[in-house]
Design a binder for these strands. Structure first.
Length: 463
RNA sequence: GGCGGCGUGGCCGAGUGGUUUAGGCAGGGGCCUGCAAAGCCCCGUACGGCGGUUCGAUUCCGCCCGCCGCCUCCA
């Protein structure tokens, strides 16, 4: 059984499900006001790895991830560019899904948009006001944090120490600096929805609590996001659920941040690197491998050097797939199918043990690379059958982590195919000078060239 | 100031109270190869500093230094 580090308890906990066989998880998606950065990519990968592993072990996963399509930043951008909020949101959401696809991330089973749930949000805020948990001010409706049982659970801080660190804005009518907006009354020119408190729009924390409970129901299994969301975002979602009298998430999972040159990636720091840019230069699988080689809760460095490192590691896996001509469909097998197909049980068990231990992908990846060496060694020693079996387990396990291995030769255009033929002729005639000349030209055109018993084989060198 | 976390060999990055090593990348040597590529074998003896506990600590405890995240929007 999978154990995960739970942010609420600070300990590794078994993932006990509300309903055996099905995992219900809500992952905070993003606000679509700009192109995504590499940190968003890691977030998508972190939960994709979780989901794939759960599905690999035979569970069904209801994976809900929202898109926040109304927000200050979207409004600002729309105003600055003279277009509608919806145009801005639609444009960047599209960019996002392109990046998600390029990373090989399975799309969520459901993608609620905040603007589609405003009515339900208004209902929640009304209820919270009625219950006396929330109050109205000149600029909105706020939740009173003081009465909330266990507020600070996810921050691991007491109400007092949180209050001590809170920054207070001038002119606020909040009863406590920690109170947060459930509803924001509209300023001129902003998009609005009607409410008992006049036209306005929902607060961010209200969006997620409404959508998660609406789509997954009380006591859903897992709520996740980046560690920077634990407080105040998730804390405040939980606070609302509590005041609302609903059972909220059973488990909390948060992944670590991406840093660039040891600083958190962020626009304000100016070290912003877009995911789109990364995916233009490097294939998504390499970024996935980079992410997998660190634990999901550790910070990772994304730099040209760490990416290049991952590219080389990936090349080693692909070389194995070429050597054994591994079928791409192997990476789609789940655990039961793999056992049925006769994949080495020891390798599968070791993988499951590592992954069950808080998704220990670094160890799992290390294990896969050990299998790579094992397969190559066995093949070198002429133990063909053993080698093939080990190579197959590499493909299956890498696939379980979302890494599809690229084996079989690519489609060659006529020009390239002719060169390959000419090189094989030259080699057959032992005309090494000519063979080498052709090889150099192929390499200059971005091909990796390998001589095999079957003649010249090409593969794309990615970088 | 409060809370959480980190500091491992050239780089990335796991892990562990002591016996034989994570893994990858880069580098050196060798084998294979017409030469390469791919692959295999061998090589680095690392755990921020100072104390403490211990027969023994990189691993536990304390302090210090440095770094990161959160306490404000943020994956």
């Amino acid at each position: 059984m999978l154990h995960l580090h739970d942010t609420a308890t600070g300990r590794r906990e078994p993932l006990e499900l509300r309903e055996p066989g099905t995992v219900t998880m809500y992952v905070c998606g993003l606000t679509v006001y700009d192109v995504p950065h590499v940190g968003h990519g890691r977030a998508a990968l972190a939960f994709d790895v979780l989901r794939r592993y759960l599905e690999f072990t035979g569970l069904r996963v209801d994976h809900v991830s929202n898109v926040t399509d109304i927000d200050d930043k979207i409004i600002d951008r729309a105003a600055a560019e003279g277009r509608s909020e919806q145009e801005v949101a639609t444009e960047y959401e599209e960019v996002w899904w392109q990046a998600v696809d390029a990373l090989g991330v399975r799309r969520p089973t459901e993608v609620p948009h905040a603007t589609g749930y405003v009515g339900k949000m208004v209902a929640l805020v009304s209820e919270l006001v009625e219950r006396g948990a929330a109050y109205e001010t000149d600029d909105g409706v706020y939740l009173s944090v003081d009465g909330v049982d266990g507020y600070g659970l996810l921050a691991h801080q007491s109400l007092d120490s949180l209050r001590a660190g809170a920054r207070v804005e001038v002119g606020e009518q909040k009863r406590s600096p920690l109170d947060f907006a459930l509803w924001k009354k509209a300023k001129p020119g902003e998009p609005t929805w009607p409410s008992p408190w006049g036209p306005g729009r929902p607060g961010w924390h209200t969006e997620c609590v409404v959508m998660s409970l609406e789509l997954l129901g009380d006591g859903f299994d897992l709520h996740g996001g980046g560690i920077d969301l634990a407080f105040p975002h998730h804390e405040n979602e939980r606070a609302q659920a509590l005041c609302w009298g609903r059972d909220f998430a059973r488990h909390w999972m948060h992944h670590g941040m991406v840093t660039v040159e040891a600083e958190k990636m962020s626009k304000s720091l100016g070290n912003f690197t877009t995911l789109t840019e990364l995916l233009e230069r490097t294939e998504g699988r390499a970024y996935r491998l980079l992410v997998l080689r660190a634990h999901y809760r550790s910070p990772i460095e994304v730099t040209p050097a760490t990416l290049a490192d991952a590219v080389e590691g990936l090349a080693r896996l692909d070389a194995l797939a070429r050597r054994f001509d591994l079928d791409p469909s192997l990476s789609e097998l789940d655990l039961a199918q793999a056992r049925e197909a006769g994949v080495d049980g020891g390798a599968l068990d070791a993988f499951v043990e590592r992954m069950d231990d808080d998704l220990d992908t670094p160890e799992a990846v290390a294990g896969i690379f050990e299998l790579v060496r094992g397969a190559n060694s066995a093949a070198d020693a002429g133990r063909t059958e053993e080698a093939r079996g080990t190579a197959v387990s590499v493909a299956v396990l890498a696939g379980a982590l979302g890494l599809r291995l690229v084996g079989g030769g690519p489609e060659l255009d006529e020009h390239t195919a002719v060169m390959v033929r000419q090189r094989d002729e030259a080699r057959a005639e032992r005309d090494w000078a000519r063979a080498d000349r052709i090889r150099e030209q192929l390499e200059a055109e971005g091909w990796g060239v390998e001589d095999t018993p079957g003649g010249t084989k090409l593969h794309r060198r990615s970088g």
